[in-house]
Design a protein around this nucleic acid. Structure first.
Length: 154
DNA sequence: GCCAACGTTGGC
DNA sequence: GCCAACGTTGGC
């Protein structure tokens, strides 16, 4: 079992959207490191922290809930679609550049674990998402860090 | 809205 | 293969 953190702009596609959809293809990732985590690292059933970036005062940046990996990796079709925001002419159907997995809703936290709380918690020292300039949209999380954040959410 | 940090591109 | 320029992310 591996643990992950995925980022989404909360007002673009947030935990409530995932709750409504129950399951969604995590499309549009156009970063090689993030792709490799989905393609080679993620296994069915892996647990995932759902993080909202670009928060506001009303809904601050932080972890809002839990998801899980709900498929094996498969090609990201949005890369083939000229009209899609994430169209990538270099990705060919016969040899796709971009892969994704499905994410399924697990739970929404009663209260989010905000980025400032994450930075303040000594047990979370070194967690990637709290590091300056950490822009990676899919990050591995240690079991200890994962469980600490879960505890902080209740 | 600003801007620092980062990944990617492309000229050489 | 280097590195400057550019576009994007994301915290504030």
């Amino acid at each position: 079992m591996n643990y992950w953190l995925i980022k989404s702009e909360g007002d673009c596609y947030g935990i409530d959207d995932l709750k409504k959809d129950k399951k969604t293809p995590w499309s549009g990732v156009r970063n090689f490191q993030a792709r490799n985590f989905m393609k080679d690292g993620m296994k069915l059933g892996d647990k995932v922290l759902f993080y909202h970036s670009n928060g506001t005062k009303e809904s601050p940046t932080g972890v809002y809930g839990l998801a899980k990996v709900a498929s094996k990796p498969y090609p990201d079709d949005t890369a083939f679609d000229k009209r899609d925001d994430h169209y990538d002419p270099k990705s060919k159907k016969e040899n796709p550049t971009w892969f994704l997995v499905d994410m399924a809703f697990v739970s929404k936290f009663k209260k989010p674990v905000t980025l400032s709380e994450i930075k303040f918690e000594p047990k979370l020292m070194g967690i990637m998402v709290a590091q300056v300039g950490s822009r990676l949209s899919i990050q591995p999380v240690s079991k200890e860090h994962f469980e600490t954040i879960l505890k902080m959410s209740s």
